[in-house]
Amino acid sequence: MTDTVPRTVECWLPAWPRFDRLHPLRMQLQRADRLADGAVGYLGGLSAYFSCAGGMPAAALTRDYLVGDAGDTYWLSADPAWVQPDLTGARLMACGQLPLSMDEAEALAEPLHAVFAEEGMQLHVSSPQRWHLRLPAAHAVPDFPAPETALGEDLYEHLPQGEQARRWRVLFNEAQVLLHQHPLNAQRRERGLPPVNSLWFWGGGALPARIDTALRGVIGEDLLLLALAKRAGIPVQPRRRLDAASAGWLIDLQDQPADAIATEWWPSLQQLCKRERVLFTCASGERWLHRPWHRLRVWRRSVS
Rank of each mutant, 00 (worst) to 15 (best):
G217K: 08
A94R: 13
D103E: 14
A165S: 04
E119Y: 08
Q97P: 00
F201G: 07
E148S: 12
W202A: 00
G203W: 11
V141M: 08
P80H: 04
R210Q: 15
A78K: 04
P183W: 02
G120R: 05
N197D: 02
E148F: 09
V83A: 05
M93L: 13
H113P: 00
E119L: 09
H182T: 06
N173H: 09
P208H: 03
S198E: 05
M102L: 14
R169V: 03
A175P: 02
I219N: 05
A206E: 08
A214F: 01
R91Q: 09
T213V: 03
R130W: 15
L100P: 03
G96M: 09
Q84M: 14
Q164Y: 01
P208S: 06
L193F: 00
P208Y: 06
G205H: 04
R134F: 00
E106W: 03
E157C: 09
A206M: 11
Q176H: 11
S126V: 06
M121T: 11
L178Y: 10
Q187K: 13
A94Q: 13
H132C: 13
R189S: 10
L184N: 10
D79R: 04
G203Y: 07
S101V: 03
Q161T: 08
G89K: 05
P80Y: 00
A81S: 13
N185L: 08
R134G: 14
L184D: 01
Q161L: 11
D79P: 11
F144S: 08
E163I: 14
G96F: 10
I219L: 06
E163Q: 13
A206H: 10
P142W: 00
H180P: 05
A150L: 05
H158Q: 03
L184Q: 11
Y156I: 14
A90D: 09
Q187A: 15
S126D: 15
W168C: 05
N173V: 15
P183A: 12
H158L: 05
F201I: 10
E153C: 00
T149D: 15
G205M: 03
P111T: 07
E163D: 09
E190C: 10
H180V: 15
E153D: 12
L76V: 08
A105D: 01
H158E: 05
L207K: 07
T88V: 14
G120W: 00
A105N: 01
E119D: 07
P145D: 06
M102P: 02
E190R: 06
L193Y: 02
A90V: 05
A214G: 15
M102S: 11
S101G: 10
A117N: 12
A186F: 15
L215F: 00
E148W: 11
L133R: 10
H158A: 02
A78E: 12
E104V: 07
L98R: 12
P145H: 02
A137M: 02
A150Q: 09
Q164L: 09
A186E: 10
A137I: 04
A140D: 07
V83Y: 04
S126M: 04
A209G: 15
Y74N: 15
G192C: 14
Y74G: 15
Q122T: 13
P147C: 03
A137K: 10
R191T: 07
H113F: 03
Q164K: 06
P111Q: 05
W168S: 01
E119N: 08
E153T: 07
P111Y: 06
R210A: 15
L135M: 05
L133F: 01
V218H: 01
Q187C: 13
L133V: 04
G162P: 07
L215A: 02
A140Q: 03
G120S: 07
P160N: 12
R166A: 15
S126A: 07
L193N: 08
A209D: 08
